[in-house]
């Protein structure tokens, strides 16, 4: 009895740390995967075709072979505004290595307003006019900004919910750039695989 009383502070400390740890892990899991629960890293990025600001149709799967950062944003989203200059920098810096940033505007603003906003932000990558159905494919996109980093073979390798640090996003981009296109993988595996 006396032992249990003496031990109880230690038990309380352990309980406190376990509870805090569980909540911390839960928090970070939610940050990474909470919204698009059906999409896991390594899922093939759902394909879609959307119209860009210049009136052209763009299909995501046409970008296979490139590393893609698919960024859902809106003109009314303050944190999105912070990220956009970073994306401009990334596109400049890594575009020649095969990075393609793609913005998907998820707001009700007119095309003209979206275009004005993008121009003011100096955006140097395509902006597509988002549709709810495309948002649904990516888990509903209930909070913005939300970005998906997609490997050269079309797989989601990172989901970035809310504003994260520039360096953290850059790390994800580098990982995507280090991936191989599906065709290279196939040929590589053909070479390696014994007959």
């Amino acid at each position: 009895m006396e032992n249990s009383v003496k031990r109880s502070p230690l038990v309380l400390v352990i309980v406190a740390f376990v509870v805090a740890l569980m909540l911390y892990v839960g928090y970070h899991k939610a940050r990474g995967a909470g919204f698009a629960s059906h999409l896991t890293t390594s899922s093939i990025a759902p394909d879609f075709t959307l119209e860009s600001l210049d009136g052209r149709s763009m299909r995501l799967s046409d970008l296979r072979g490139k590393a893609v950062l698919l960024n859902f944003w809106a003109t009314w989203c303050g944190p999105c505004k912070i990220e956009m200059p970073w994306f401009v920098d990334f596109q400049k810096q890594y575009g020649s290595q095969g990075l393609q940033i793609v913005g998907v505007a998820m707001d009700d603003a007119s095309k003209a307003d979206i275009a004005k906003f993008a121009k003011d932000m100096g955006v140097n990558y395509p902006i597509l006019i988002g549709k709810e159905s495309v948002g649904d494919q990516y888990g509903g996109v209930p909070a913005l900004p939300e970005s998906f980093v997609i490997s050269r073979d079309g797989k989601i390798i990172d989901k970035i919910i809310g504003l994260r640090g520039k360096a953290e996003i850059e790390e994800s981009i580098k990982k995507a750039l280090d991936t191989q296109p599906a065709s290279s993988q196939a040929s590589a595996s053909t070479k390696v695989a014994p007959e």
Partner: peptide
Amino acid sequence: AGMKLHGFLALFIIFLTAASVSSAQTLG
């Protein structure tokens, strides 16, 4: 001293739980 320690630990647990829950709630 034991009672004080208990009180301190109880407060510590409440603080940790509240901080974690509030940060989890404001996410997403």
